[in-house]
Design a protein around this nucleic acid. Structure first.
Length: 423
RNA sequence: GGAGAAAUGGCAGAGUGGUCGAAUGCGGCAGUCUUGAAAACUGUUGAGGGUCACACCUCCGGGGGUUCGAAUCCCUCUUUCUCCGCCA
């Protein structure tokens, strides 16, 4: 959520910046400002009424104490109208505050100056590419065929148990999955991230804290009986650890890594481009979350990008990094780098990681602050990145490492798997 | 799931209708003392709104109510603890 103060002071700059998202925020921002004016006005009226009322109450108390009941009774009558007024102002204030809140929820984060203009993923800017695209044997298969051939992932069985998009991993497929999780967590903890295990269901307030609600309501599975949401990403539970907290500046950087399954409804997205592991309702992901001093958040983002690069390099997968354009940028993000692995057999790039700086957008909702040198509370910055989304890494490995004799296991994973080929 | 108890500042813990944003202790910060540190002593120390700065307003788990006045009384929700039941 953008800060009111920023909206008031830099309205025009924000409008121009939001144009990169193809959003004309002019009416929205003007509405916000006029509502905030109104809010202040009503708040002042309410405060004054309450102040007078408080004063009278004190006087009445004193009079009663000194036995002047008659005078007290006279004063009491004066409180009647004050009470009515304060009730009216309070209701008005609640209404205005609610409207204001609803408007603020609709405004996406302001893109970083480096974010390129553009509408779709076509306009994303490739900033880095590394790794050789392997020359595959004739008759190279896409991963869903390989999964069947070697009997390591069973999509039909998942349909039987839960539905489409819930694959069952079997044998070496399951083991490879577990190996990847352990490998990623090891890489992350070696880089200083603290490992953590968090709930896979979250309450509504947590969903608002990180910005999935109300923006992506339909993307999440909702358990109505208990009013809980299945997490679409570990970002929600991990970041919400810090909701309503004032952290110590000395604790920066705060870094966490956690593995969770992720659940996404992906309503309406069916077809050839979501075959196999490309898009699922349930998948595994190891996530990175950082809470940073505002002065350091972009350096931290760069560091996160370098860290993820190191993992892909070690896995020897061909990948590229994109700077997302305004139209493709997530609602809450100021700057996002996507990582894509080249899927040779499918001849397309698959998004496997995404690293974002949310600046103070989430922390403003979370009330996540720190005390600066002057003892003033300031909003911290939050970042996150996937390291990595398992299914597409798996797809990349299966497709790029296939040989006539079977699927080779990347060297770095062999100790985790206990085998070096799937055949 | 049933019965009972509780929820107060970073922590512990007073406060049961009026001057309580809240005693006290610990912790934190600053200072005195010390070569330095510890101890001791002194001061300071919640958050938000509002203001140039004050004033002023709000917050004692959340929401609602009673009252001129609520941390204190009532209702409700949530959470925690104890006992019973059930059960990985």
């Amino acid at each position: 959520m953008l800060q009111l103060q920023a909206i008031r002071e830099q309205k025009d700059e924000i409008i121009i910046a939001l144009k990169k998202r193809n959003v004309d925020a002019t009416p929205l921002l003007e509405n916000v400002i006029s509502l905030d004016d109104k809010r202040r006005d009503v708040q002042t009226k309410l405060d004054n009424t309450l102040a007078e009322s408080n004063k009278l109450s004190k006087e009445i108390g004193m009079l009663f104490k000194s036995g002047k009941a008659n005078e007290a009774t006279i004063l009491k009558e004066r409180t009647v109208t004050l009470k009515e007024d304060s009730r009216t102002f309070q209701e008005e204030l609640n209404t205005v505050a609610e409207e204001l809140q609803a408007l603020l929820y609709q405004i996406p984060n302001v893109p970083h100056p480096s974010v390129p203009a553009g509408n779709t993923d076509e306009d994303n800017e490739e900033i880095f590419r590394e790794g050789d695209i392997p020359k595959l044997v004739d008759g190279a298969l896409p991963h869903w065929e390989l999964a069947k051939k070697y009997d390591i992932i069973d999509f039909e069985l998942g349909v039987k148990i839960a539905g489409a998009g819930f694959p069952v991993y079997k044998g070496k497929g399951a083991r490879l999955q577990r190996a990847l999780i352990a490998y990623f967590l090891d890489k992350n903890t070696a880089a200083g991230y603290q490992e953590i295990q968090v709930p896979h269901l979250v309450n509504e307030i947590s969903g608002y804290g990180t910005g999935q609600l109300p923006d992506k309501e339909g993307q999440m599975y909702h358990v109505t009986e208990d009013d809980l949401y299945l997490i679409p990403t570990a970002e929600i539970p991990i970041t919400n650890i810090f909701r309503d907290t004032i952290v110590n500046q000395k604790d920066f950087p705060i870094t966490y890594t956690g593995y969770t399954p992720c659940f996404r409804r992906e309503a309406g997205s069916y077809g050839a481009h979501v075959r196999g592991l490309n898009r699922l309702h349930q998948f595994d992901k190891v996530e990175l979350v950082r809470v940073e001093h505002p002065d350091n958040s972009y350096a931290a983002l760069d560091g996160m990008v370098e860290h993820i690069k190191g993992i892909l390099r070690e896995l020897k997968l061909p990948y590229r990094i994109l700077r997302l354009c305004g139209g493709d940028l997530g609602f809450t993000s100021a700057l996002t780098f996507d990582f894509e692995v080249f899927s040779t057999a499918q001849d397309r790039w698959l998004e496997i990681s995404s690293a974002s700086n949310f600046e103070a957008y989430q922390t403003n909702r979370l009330k996540l602050r720190f005390k600066d040198e002057n003892g003033k509370s300031q909003l911290a910055h939050t970042l996150n990145g996937s390291s990595l989304a398992l299914p597409r890494v798996l797809a990349g490995i299966l497709e790029n490492y296939q040989t006539e004799n079977g699927i080779k296991i990347p060297e770095a994973l062999v100790p985790y798997c206990g085998f070096d080929i799937i055949d």
